[in-house]
């Protein structure tokens, strides 16, 4: 996997408590709708993921409202309307590998959730 990232400008989006554990929220970032997820693993660790909020199957801005989980070891979100799964790390749809949503860098700084200006391209 090669990750190619340019321009590391981090922008504060919200407070950690604004996103409930194991849930997603939609954020406006660079005039785009982005779905940010906060996923706890049972060891107590916590990861943040950000992908497009726009669902390529339903053509609606709904991905932030899906259920988080893991399937075959991948951390995924299931689309609330037609239930396809997207790998949160890569944005690739499990049911149709040709469909992929964008993923974005996101991290926690103290209590603040930050996103970067750049989009990552994972290949």
């Amino acid at each position: 996997m090669t990750t190619n990232m340019t321009n590391k400008q981090w922008v504060a989006i919200c407070n950690i408590d604004d996103i409930l554990p194991n849930m997603g929220r939609c954020a406006l970032f660079n005039n785009k709708q982005v779905a940010i997820f906060r996923v706890l693993d049972s060891a107590g660790g916590e990861s943040f993921y950000a992908i497009d909020n726009y669902c390529p199957f339903s053509h609606a801005n709904t991905l932030s409202r899906g259920i988080t989980g893991n399937i075959d070891g991948k951390t995924v979100i299931s689309s609330p309307l037609y239930k396809q799964h997207f790998d949160l790390l890569t944005g690739i749809c499990l049911e149709d590998k040709n469909v992929k949503v964008n993923t974005y860098p996101v991290r926690l700084d103290g209590h603040a959730v930050l996103m970067s200006e750049a989009t990552i391209n994972v290949s």
């Binding site: 996923v39 049972s42 899906g66 259920i67 988080t68 989980g69 893991n70 070891g73 951390t75 299931s78």
Partner: peptide, 23 residues
């Protein structure tokens, strides 16, 4: 759910659940 997963889940430690078992 956490209690159920901890006591009876099949992937002890790593499982998060999914859109089948959670609802």
């Amino acid at each position: 759910f956490d209690e159920l997963l901890e006591k009876h889940g099949s992937q002890s430690g790593t499982g998060l659940g999914c859109d089948i078992c959670k609802p």
